[in-house]
C-alpha cells in the first residue's frame, strides 16, 4: 500500500474543454434536424418532436433521481421502477376519487385534480422511498451484487403488492376533460396533454437546476457526487443527505409514474419495470451520476423513439439501444462521465 494515492491530473485547455462539454448538448438539435430530413413532412415532424420531447422529459423526471442516487452513494436501485408503478396507481386512485373535478369542464378543476394526484403520489412514493432505503438498500451499501439482487427483490414484492391492493388487471386511466384531444398548429395536430407534460418537465428541470446550482443542499449533492469523503470531512453527514436524495428521487419517479399513466392512459403493475429499460439506457447514455447527461440522454431517446416509431415502427427500441452503443463507443463512460475521487 502506498501513501501516494494521487492520480496524475491532466489539465486541458479551457477552450477545448468548453467545446467538448458543449458538444453533447448539440446532439439534441442535430437529431431533430436529422429527423426533419428523414421525415420530410413538417407537420408530422412537429407532432413527433413534441411527442418526443414530452416522452423524453417524462423519462428524465423518472431517471434523474436514479442517477443522482448512484452518483452520491454508488447505489443503483433496480427497484426504481416500483416507485413509477406505485406513483401511477396512487395518482389514479386520487383521480378516481376526484371524479367530479376531472369530469368537469373547468380547466382549473381539471388541473387541480391532476396537481393533487401528483402531490399525493409524490408524498406516497417519497415515504415508500424512505422505507425502501432503510429496509432494502441500507444493509447492502457498498456491495454491488447484493444491491442489485435485493433491489430487484424489492421490485418483485412491490409489484405483487400493487396486485394485492389494486388487482391484477391493467387499468384504464381517463385524462381530465380539458387535457383530452389536440390543438392544431398549422397542419400539425398536437395532443394537449403532451404540451402539459413538456411544461411540467421543463419547469421541473429548471427547478432542479436551480436547486443544484444555487442552494446549499444542491452544492452538497454536487460535491458529494464528486467526493463524498471530503464532504464528510467538512462535517456533513452524507448518509442523511443520501436519504433525502433517495426520497426525492423516489418521489420524482412517482411523479413520472402519474404523468406516464396519463400519457399511456393505461397502467399496470409492470409499467415501471418496462419503462426502466428506457431509464437505464438514458442513465447510461448520460453518464452514471450526471444530471445534465441524463437530461440530454432522455431528450435524445424520446426524440429518436418517436421518429423511428414513425419511420420504422418495428425498430423503435432497438434504435435506442443502437444509440446507446454508438454513444458508448464515442464516450465509454457516457456523455458526462462523473469524476469519482473515491
Amino acid at each position: 500500500m502506498s501513501d501516494t494515492t494521487i492520480k496524475p491530473r491532466i489539465e486541458k485547455a479551457p477552450v477545448l474543454e468548453r467545446i467538448t462539454t458543449a458538444l453533447p448538448i448539440a446532439l439534441v438539435p442535430v437529431l431533430a434536424v436529422l429527423g426533419f430530413v428523414a421525415i420530410g413532412d413538417p407537420a408530422a415532424w412537429l407532432t413527433l418532436t413534441v411527442a418526443g420531447l414530452a416522452m423524453g422529459l417524462m423519462i428524465f423526471i423518472m431517471a434523474s433521481g436514479l442517477t443522482v442516487v448512484f452518483g452520491l452513494m454508488d447505489v443503483i436501485n433496480f427497484g426504481h421502477g416500483a416507485f413509477i408503478s406505485v406513483g401511477a396507481f396512487v395518482g389514479f386512485s386520487i383521480l378516481i376519487w376526484l371524479g367530479g373535478w376531472t369530469a368537469s369542464s373547468s380547466v382549473f378543476l381539471n388541473l387541480a385534480a391532476v396537481f393533487l394526484a401528483i402531490l399525493v403520489s409524490m408524498v406516497a412514493t417519497g415515504l415508500m422511498g424512505y422505507a425502501f432505503e432503510r429496509v432494502i438498500v441500507m444493509p447492502v451499501y457498498g456491495q454491488h451484487l447484493k444491491q442489485i439482487l435485493v433491489t430487484m427483490g424489492g421490485l418483485i414484492v412491490a409489484q405483487q403488492l400493487i396486485h394485492v391492493f389494486w388487482g391484477p388487471d391493467e387499468i384504464h386511466v381517463a385524462r381530465p376533460e380539458s387535457l383530452r384531444g389536440s390543438i392544431v398548429i398549422g397542419e400539425a395536430a398536437i395532443e394537449k396533454y403532451r404540451l402539459v407534460a413538456v411544461g411540467i418537465g421543463v419547469a421541473l428541470f429548471l427547478a432542479m437546476r436551480h436547486v443544484l446550482k444555487s442552494t446549499k443542499i444542491g452544492l452538497l449533492v454536487r460535491a458529494g457526487v464528486e467526493n463524498g469523503e471530503m464532504v464528510e470531512a467538512l462535517g456533513y453527514r452524507i448518509r442523511r443527505l443520501f436519504l433525502i436524495v433517495f426520497m426525492v428521487g423516489s418521489a420524482l419517479a412517482g411523479l413520472g409514474g402519474v404523468m406516464w399513466g396519463l400519457y399511456q392512459e393505461t397502467i399496470t403493475a409492470h409499467m415501471g419495470s418496462e419503462i426502466m429499460v428506457l431509464v437505464f439506457i438514458v442513465v447510461i447514455i448520460g453518464g452514471l451520476g450526471s444530471v445534465e447527461g441524463c437530461f440530454i440522454g432522455a431528450l435524445l431517446v424520446g426524440l429518436l423513439s418517436n421518429y423511428t416509431a414513425f419511420l420504422a415502427p418495428k425498430v423503435a427500441l432497438v434504435s435506442t439501444i443502437a444509440l446507446m452503443v454508438i454513444i458508448l463507443m464515442w464516450r465509454p463512460q457516457g456523455l458526462y462521465p462523473v469524476v469519482k475521487a473515491k
Binding site: 443503483i76 444491491q147 442489485i148 429499460v277 437505464f280 447510461i284 452514471l288 427500441l317 439501444i321 463512460q333
Partner: peptide, 23 residues
C-alpha cells in the same frame, strides 16, 4: 461492458435483453 462496473453490465444486459425480446 465488463470493463466498467458490475452495475453497468447489469444495466446494459437488461436493456439489450429487453430490446432483443421485443425485436
Amino acid at each position: 461492458s465488463l470493463r466498467v462496473k458490475a452495475i453497468f453490465f447489469a444495466m446494459v444486459t437488461l436493456a439489450v435483453a429487453s430490446a432483443f425480446a421485443i425485436a
